[in-house]
C-alpha cells in the first residue's frame, strides 16, 4: 500500500508540475493562466453535453490506456495503439456491411464488438510475433504498423466500402441495429451505458492481471525473462498474448466511435487516442485501476482545450499537446522528486 501511495503521489506531483509549466507558458504568451484553467474546466463540466463529451473523449483512452498497460506488464512498450484502434474501428464498420441483416441490436453490437476486438488483436499480434520469433524491437515495428494501418484504412475507406453518397472520406452508414444509444441527459453527446461497461472492463482486467495465472506469467516475463524461462514460462507466448490483448483493447475503440458516435468509419476520426493512451498508462504507473482517473484527466484536457480556440486570443487547442508532453516528462523523470536520497546498501 505504501508503494502505491508513493506512486500516486508521484503521479499527482507530475501532473501538477506539467500543468503549472504549461500555464506559465500561457502567461508568457500573453494569456491569463486563470482564464485558460477556467476555460478548460467550464468546457468539460459546464453542462450535461460538455460532461458527456468529456466522457466520450475519455472512453477511448480507457482502452488505449489498457493497450499500453497490459504489454508493459510483459516488458513490452506498445506504441501501436493508434494503428490497432484504426483497424478495430475499420473492422467494426466492416461488420456493419457484412452483418447488415442482423436485426437484433444485442447480436449486432456483440458481432461488431467481436470483429473490432479480433481485428485490433491481430494487428497487435503481428509485432508480438515478430518480437517473439525474430526479436524485432516492438517499438519500431508498432510505429511502422501505425503507418501501415493509416494507409490501409484510407484504402479500405476510399476503395472498398466507401459511402457512395458522401463527399467525405467515410464508409457506409451502419444499420440501425448497430447504433448505441446515448443518454438523454447528455443532450446529444454520444455517450451512454458504454462508459460504465468500459469502467467495469478496467476493473475486470485489473482483477484478472493480478489474480490469474496468465497475468502472473506476463508479470514474471516482464520482470525477469531469464528467470521466467528457467521456471517454465514461455516469454514468446507471453509476449504474443499480451500484444494480442493490447491490440484487442485498442480495437474496441471502434465500438466507442463507430457504434457509439459516427455509425461509420471516418478517416481521421482519432484524436491521437493511441498516443494519448501512452500518457494515460504512464500516468497510472503500471497500476491498471489508475487508468480510470488518468483517462478522465486526459479526457478533460481534450475536451477543455477544444474550446481554447474560441475562448482565448493567444492559445489554441494544441496547448493540450504541450500539457500532455510536460505531464509525461514530469511523471517519468524519476529523479525529480527524490531529494538526494542516498542508496543505503551499495
Amino acid at each position: 500500500m505504501n508503494r502505491m501511495m508513493k506512486a500516486s503521489l508521484k503521479s499527482i506531483a507530475g501532473v501538477l508540475l506539467g500543468l503549472t509549466l504549461a500555464l506559465i507558458v500561457c502567461h508568457f504568451a500573453g494569456e491569463s493562466p486563470w482564464k485558460v484553467l477556467k476555460v478548460l474546466f467550464q468546457s468539460s463540466f459546464g453542462s450535461g453535453y460538455d460532461f458527456g463529451m468529456t466522457l466520450f473523449y475519455a472512453a477511448p483512452l480507457f482502452l488505449t490506456g489498457l493497450a499500453v498497460s497490459i504489454p508493459i506488464r510483459a516488458g513490452l512498450f506498445n506504441v501501436g495503439g493508434e494503428g490497432q484502434l484504426l483497424i478495430g474501428a475499420l473492422a467494426a464498420a466492416y461488420a456493419g456491411v457484412v452483418g447488415k441483416n442482423i436485426a437484433s441490436p444485442v447480436a449486432a453490437v456483440l458481432f461488431a464488438t467481436a470483429f473490432a476486438f479480433v481485428a485490433g488483436g491481430i494487428w497487435g499480434l503481428i509485432p508480438g510475433i515478430l518480437k517473439a520469433k525474430r526479436g524485432s524491437h516492438e517499438v519500431i515495428t508498432t510505429i511502422m504498423m501505425n503507418f501501415i494501418a493509416a494507409g490501409l484504412s484510407s484504402y479500405v475507406t476510399l476503395y472498398l466500402i466507401k459511402d457512395p453518397e458522401s463527399s467525405q472520406a467515410e464508409t457506409m452508414l451502419l444499420p440501425e441495429a448497430f447504433h448505441l444509444k446515448p443518454f438523454e441527459k447528455f443532450a446529444g453527446a454520444p455517450m451512454g451505458w458504454l462508459i460504465f461497461v468500459l469502467i467495469a472492463l478496467v476493473f475486470v482486467i485489473h482483477y484478472w492481471m493480478w489474480n490469474s495465472v496468465r497475468g502472473y506469467e506476463l508479470k514474471a516475463v516482464g520482470e525477469n525473462e531469464k528467470a521466467a524461462e528457467t521456471y517454465g514460462i514461455s516469454k514468446q507466448s507471453a509476449w504474443m498474448f499480451a500484444m494480442f490483448m493490447a491490440g484487442g483493447m485498442a480495437g474496441l475503440v471502434g465500438v466507442v466511435e463507430v457504434l457509439g458516435n459516427a455509425h461509420r468509419f471516418k478517416l481521421g476520426f482519432s484524436a491521437d487516442y493511441g498516443f494519448v493512451g501512452i500518457a494515460v498508462a504512464l500516468l497510472a504507473r503500471g497500476n491498471i485501476l489508475g487508468i480510470i482517473p488518468s483517462a478522465l484527466l486526459f479526457g478533460i484536457l481534450q475536451k477543455g482545450s477544444a474550446s481554447l480556440d474560441l475562448e482565448t486570443d493567444k492559445v489554441t487547442r494544441d496547448l493540450s499537446y504541450i500539457i500532455q508532453g510536460l505531464i509525461i516528462l514530469g511523471v517519468v523523470a524519476e529523479g525529480l522528486f527524490e531529494w538526494r536520497k542516498k542508496a543505503k546498501n551499495a
Binding site: 498516443f275 494519448v276 499537446y321 504541450i322 500532455q324 517519468v332
Partner: peptide, 8 residues
C-alpha cells in the same frame, strides 16, 4: 513525450 510536446 517530446514528440507530443513538439506537436504543440
Amino acid at each position: 513525450a517530446i514528440n507530443l510536446f513538439a506537436m504543440g
